[in-house]
Simulated assay, not measured.
Amino acid sequence: MEYRLAHKDFITLADFSRDDLLAILREAERIRRAEASLTTVDILHMYDEARALVAAGKRYESVLNRRAVALLFSLPSTRTRAAVEWAIVRSGGHPLYFTRATTQVSRGESIEDTVKSLEPYSAALVLRTDSHEVLTRAAAAVKIPVINALSDLEHPVEVLAEFLTLSRVIANRPNSPGNDSAAEISLDFESEISFDCFTKVKCAYIGDGNNNIAKSFAYGAAKLGIDFTIAAPNDYQCPVELREQLSKTTVKFTDDPQKAILNAHAIFSDTYISMGQEAEREKREKAFQSYQVNEALVKNADPNYAYFHCLPAYRGKEVTAAIIDGNHSHVFAIAESRLLVYRALFSLLTQNLT
């Protein structure tokens, strides 16, 4: 177990080393392999055994040990909420879900008072917010770990989930970087994976370079040593200070999607109209016309390329239906990885919390 990560906040990938991020991914993989052969009936038996131990006055050991994890979500969520809540339950805890409207924050209470009030009940806090400042203020106010489930600046868990899925795709695909297998293997989540593939794979992100997931991709790829190119219009590229910070890493920036996607083993994209940007729709649609991931663009990628999108996706906008619904797409496989990364974070960050 990686005790150096205990009690740390998970707000930005910039705060973590390559070894730290690999430790999280390896813990996610350890959890997956430990439960790979379990059926739904097996899992239900585990819950029955846990309840029996508690009823008998005996201690049942689990990651969260029946502690709560508070979720403060001020933005809509489908996939993240489902992954976080199920990860908490599978880790032996109980989710406490709040929206802005269901807390006193909606009436002017400070985020500091809110999280301090929840701290005695919680092993960790998971925040989804349109203000990164709220995350940092919450983290400064409490001693338990604070996890970023999306902010206006970053989306770090999603990026680790997509990189975990990428490693799974490579492990299951012959003739991929880091995989010398000659046999055809389906994406069945059974093969053991190695994260050595990260230094052998070429990736491209096509779309808004100034949104939260692009910034997290940049930090994550730089830390993990992934050859990663972000293609975006000049007016929508990652901030200059971030580009300068990563200028000596494996991350590159361009306004040419054809150049970015050349021989790419993996292609990532996202909507270019994020939450809160609906008023800019017409302007953005015009700016991103040549940044659609479509059949013509992917002809320049590796023939066995894999496509990823964090969803929600808008077919006919940032990606065509033929790509996102085609054989190269792995967008729904990310759901399993998202669950595993959250479970890994609870396992590593909440160690030795009383």
Rank of each mutant, 00 (worst) to 15 (best):
Pro303Ile: 03
Ala301His: 02
Lys259Ser: 14
Asp235Arg: 14
Met275Gln: 10
Val293Ile: 04
Cys310Ile: 12
Tyr219Ser: 12
Gln237His: 10
Val298Met: 06
His309Ala: 07
Ala306Asp: 03
Gln237Gly: 13
Val298Tyr: 08
Asp227Gly: 10
Leu262Ile: 15
Asp302Gly: 04
Met275Asn: 11
Lys286Asp: 11
Asn234Gly: 13
Glu285Cys: 14
Asp235Pro: 12
Asn294Phe: 02
Asn300Glu: 13
Asp256Met: 00
Lys286Trp: 13
Ser290Glu: 12
Ile226Arg: 05
Tyr219Asp: 12
Asp235Thr: 15
Thr250His: 09
Thr249Phe: 08
Ala218Leu: 09
Met275Thr: 12
Tyr307Pro: 01
Asn263Asp: 11
Tyr307Glu: 09
Lys223Met: 01
Lys299Ala: 12
Val293His: 03
Val293Phe: 00
Glu278Phe: 02
Gln292Lys: 12
Gly220Asp: 02
Ala231Met: 06
Glu282Ile: 09
Lys299His: 12
Ala287Trp: 03
Ala296Val: 12
Phe253Arg: 01
Lys252Cys: 15
Lys248Thr: 14
Val251Tyr: 05
Ile273Gln: 09
Lys223Phe: 04
Pro257Gly: 02
Asn294Gln: 06
Thr271Lys: 07
Arg284Cys: 09
Leu246Lys: 00
Asp255Ile: 04
Ile267Ser: 05
Ala218Thr: 10
Phe217Gln: 08
Asp270Tyr: 05
Glu278Ile: 05
Ile226His: 00
Tyr307Ser: 01
Ile261Cys: 07
Gly220Trp: 04
Asn300Thr: 15
Leu246Cys: 02
Val251Cys: 08
Pro257Leu: 00
Leu242Val: 02
Leu224Glu: 04
Thr250Glu: 10
Thr229Cys: 04
Ile230Arg: 04
Val251Met: 07
Asp302Arg: 03
Gly220Tyr: 03
Gln292Phe: 05
Val240Asn: 14
Arg281Ile: 03
Gln245Arg: 15
Phe308Asp: 08
Gln237Arg: 10
Phe288Val: 00
Glu282Met: 09
Phe253Gln: 04
Lys286His: 15
Thr249Lys: 05
Asp255Lys: 07
Arg243Gln: 06
Gly225Phe: 00
Glu241Lys: 14
Pro233Phe: 01
Tyr272Lys: 06
Ile230Val: 08
